[in-house]
Design a protein around this nucleic acid. Structure first.
Length: 190
DNA sequence: TGCCTGATGTTCT
DNA sequence: GAACATCAGGCAC
């Protein structure tokens, strides 16, 4: 892993969550390529009651305790996948949930996977997983490699970023660890 | 526009 | 056996 990227991803999860805004995900599937920009994230730390890693390492959460820069995919509500970027040093259970992405290229591939168009294509954690065809087969995947690559872009200025409390959770709801880009239609509405 | 609910399976208590 | 980091569709207003 490039030193700078490794340095970025081993920072505390809230810092990584903020830093990943504007970064790109490159997905290769069936000879097609889709590129999306991350516009909404949430941080989950090991000390955080809402985090899957809070209760320690289990068969499900072991990826979160692995090296930074890997993908943690989990299945929820019986029908949805959500994807996280593992952060922090190995042995530390932290990750950044990707909640919203903006299509940059390969729109046809995303629309094909979602059977629809518009902002609701990728404005939610389970939606973007469906659009990018991310499922448990990619759990533990190294994000430096195809078919799913993370490309970190230069940090954005504070003026472009909004920081709020997290949504869609029932524990530790007061932690201000949700970050999203201002005026972006691909940020989830909830 | 906004609230409510059903779908559905894995994980942990 | 209950909780769950969700979504889409239906209904009332």
């Amino acid at each position: 892993m490039p030193t700078d990227l490794h340095k970025i991803l081993t920072e505390p999860a809230p810092q990584v969550a903020r830093r990943l805004l504007g970064s790109l995900l490159v997905r290769e599937l069936n000879g097609h390529t889709a590129v999306v920009k991350i516009v909404e994230t949430e941080a989950y730390e090991q000390t955080d009651l809402a985090s899957h890693s809070y209760r320690g390492k289990t068969e499900r959460t072991k990826v979160m305790f692995g090296p930074a820069g890997h993908l943690y995919v989990y299945f929820t509500y019986g029908m949805h996948y959500c994807c996280n970027v593992v952060t922090g040093p190995t042995g530390h259970g932290a990750a950044v949930l990707v909640r919203g992405v903006e299509p940059i290229d390969g729109m046809e591939l995303l629309q094909h996977n979602r059977h629809m168009k518009g902002a609701s294509l990728t404005n939610g954690p389970a939606k973007l997983c469906q659009a990018l065809a991310i499922d448990k087969q990619l759990n533990g995947h190294n994000l430096l490699k195809a078919p799913l690559q993370l490309v970190v872009e230069p940090a954005l200025s504070d003026e472009d970023i909004v920081q709020t409390t997290r949504i869609g959770i029932t524990q530790a709801i007061d932690e201000p660890w949700r970050f999203y880009l201002k005026n972006n239609q691909f940020v989830s509405k909830m």
